[in-house]
Nucleic acid binder design. Structure first.
Lengths: 106, 106
DNA sequence: ACTTCATTTCGACGATTAGCTAAATATCAC
DNA sequence: GTGATATTTAGCTAATCGTCGAAATGAAGT
């Protein structure tokens, strides 16, 4: 989970995940969306792989990256869920609005 | 939002937020939970303040830190919401203020 | 005023990170 | 095999980060 937050700490990597949200894309296709070099993008991909946030499939001379949504969700929702409960571990549609959680007055 | 993810990328800071989830705590009280020096903790607090994740209140010679849940939720749920419809724009049964974000990203 | 306690600021240090160019690897087309 | 294309690896640099001890700030208490 630490790896996921680490991966998410970079704007470029978050943007890559957002691109992957719509459809799987090849490394080059993804790289075309950013003003950095190929090797730099490759390094970002490596971090995303290390966090298990993407699936990799080699097809011919290209590499297709695919988002692993469940991993992203488990980490983020799991973390936020510990705070607000509405977004909790296994309760997608809870009835407690997040707005009802306030600073404790205890 | 970038600041929030940046702040969340460190385990110590995430743990601080978790401690703050239960109740507001003073800097020293929080620091007691970690094996690092005071100055180091102070630096972590500064990052959390920079991300607007905590409220600060000076009381006598102590400083009370309080979690700003909505900021945490807006960032994390907003981001995840852009990926999975279930967690995002409109929860089927409940509508949380933090979840009512997102439209089209990128 | 002086001392004590809580916290932050100041420099400094080693580790990590994002970025680059050049080179290596792999696959396809010829 | 040769050449072109896609991606990664290797080696490097500069910036950022987490950490520390020492000093500074601020607010009591004596």
């Amino acid at each position: 989970m630490n790896a996921v937050f680490k991966a998410l700490s970079d704007p470029t990597r978050r943007h890559v995940l957002e691109l992957l949200r719509d459809r799987p894309m090849t490394a080059g296709e993804l790289a075309d969306h950013f003003p950095v070099s190929g090797p730099t993008m490759s390094a970002h991909f490596a971090v995303l792989r290390g966090a298990d946030l993407v699936d990799v499939q080699k097809v011919g001379k290209t590499v297709i990256y695919r988002l692993k949504l469940s991993v992203l969700e488990d980490a983020l929702l799991g973390f936020v869920g510990a705070f607000s409960a509405v977004t909790g571990p296994a309760t997608p549609a809870a009835s407690t609005p997040a707005a009802s959680i306030k600073g404790t007055t205890s």
